[in-house]
Simulated scan of single mutants.
Amino acid sequence: MAIIVNLDVMMAKRKMSLTELAEKVDLTLANLSILKTGKAKAIRFSTLDALCQALQCTPGDILDYEAETDAASEQLGERSLN
């Protein structure tokens, strides 16, 4: 996936544990862990807002975009030519 979740980086900068953050944003440890490890498929804006408030940051501090690799793009291009 091209969206990178940097929640662990922000937590480290704020010296906040997963348990402490889960309590502040009212999420279960399991759900927060899924988000932290980048396994989540979606995030609610209300959750993102709560995370930003708790970590005193912006959505751009938590989420990042990384373009797909050239190999994947080339492979998609070859498929469209055939």
Rank of each mutant, 00 (worst) to 15 (best):
L55N: 13
L27N: 06
N82H: 11
Q56N: 14
A42C: 02
C52S: 09
I62T: 00
N31C: 03
Q53I: 12
E23W: 02
K36N: 01
L55M: 00
S33K: 02
D61P: 15
I62L: 10
A22T: 07
A42E: 13
Y65F: 15
S46Y: 00
R44Q: 08
R79P: 10
E74W: 07
A22L: 01
D49E: 13
D49M: 10
S46D: 11
G60D: 14
E68Q: 06
K15C: 01
G38C: 06
M10D: 00
K39N: 12
A50K: 15
A42I: 01
A50E: 07
T69Q: 08
A54L: 12
K36A: 09
G38V: 12
L21H: 09
C52L: 09
R14I: 06
T19N: 10
T47L: 05
T28I: 04
E74G: 02
L27F: 09
T37Q: 03
F45I: 13
D61C: 10
A40C: 04
A71S: 15
K13V: 00
L55E: 03
S80I: 14
K13H: 02
K36Q: 07
E68M: 00
A30N: 08
T37H: 01
E78C: 07
K39Q: 12
P59E: 01
S17Y: 07
